[in-house]
């Protein structure tokens, strides 16, 4: 059922290449002989290493994506994005307060956001970056954590922000504040840790460790399975 492969024209940093249709930007670069060192990570859309910009031969409008996820198209102009510096505050999470003043104290530049929405338009994950920036300004830590949760920290928002802001680092701070201070406490977790420290399971585990394989197999086969849903 294999079909005939069509070749398409692409331009890598201005140089013309022909590649088989259906490659991603990343595999097209490799097809053309580029050995990736930077700009390549998980190759599956999770790590943000391969953030890229591109446009087309007759369309100067810049587009943004992850090179490992975007399929190449006819007349695409591609490049590799160089390392992009981004400010990150150093902090001890234990000494912070989970509110907007804290975020502004660590990242005072946040106030320079003038709501141009470039960050949102740039985000390859389609996150509402400008909205969580405004949540951060209002001190709504929980909403920043929620709206920014799928951020892969690729850095495209920071690269394109006309004010030089770094939305992904502000969001990371807010998520850590939420996880540490604001998420409701899990009593059952605390209880279990206390039980373990009190040695509640020690004897049972010792017994299992010494058990011969046939008895382990029997116990395994007989274990009760909690329904998945």
């Amino acid at each position: 059922m294999a079909e005939q492969v069509q070749m398409i024209d692409i331009y890598i940093m201005g140089k013309h290449y022909q590649v088989p249709e259906g490659l991603t930007i990343l595999t097209a670069l490799e097809y053309c002989g580029y050995r990736m060192i930077r700009g390549c990570g998980c190759r599956a859309g999770f790590c943000g290493a391969c953030a890229t910009v591109y446009n087309f031969k007759n369309d100067p409008q810049l587009r943004y994506d992850l090179a490992c996820q975007k399929t190449v198209e006819q007349d695409m102009y591609l490049t590799q994005i160089p390392f992009f510096p981004a400010a990150k505050a150093l902090y001890n999470l234990e000494e912070l307060k989970p509110d907007g003043e804290q975020v502004l104290a660590l990242y005072p530049d946040l106030e320079k956001c003038f709501g141009c929405n470039t960050c949102t338009k740039t985000c390859p994950q389609d996150l509402e970056v400008m909205w969580f920036m405004s949540d951060a300004l209002r001190g709504d830590i929980r909403e920043v954590a929620n709206k920014s949760f799928d951020c892969v920290m690729c850095g495209l928002c920071a690269a394109r922000c006309p004010q030089g802001l770094v939305p992904y680092n502000y969001a990371l701070l807010c998520r850590r504040l939420y996880g540490h201070y604001l998420a409701p406490a899990s009593k059952h977790l605390e209880d279990r840790i206390a039980e373990i420290e009190a040695g509640k399971f020690d004897a049972e585990i010792e017994e299992l460790k010494r058990m011969d394989e046939s008895e382990l197999r029997r116990r395994y086969a007989q274990r009760e399975i909690e329904p998945a849903y």
Binding site: L93, F149, R176, L177, Y178, G179, H180, A183, P184
Partner: peptide
């Protein structure tokens, strides 16, 4: 350290 686990409103 600030990891946001999926939780129910009662903290479980």
């Amino acid at each position: 350290l600030g990891v946001c686990w999926d939780k129910n409103p009662d903290g479980t």
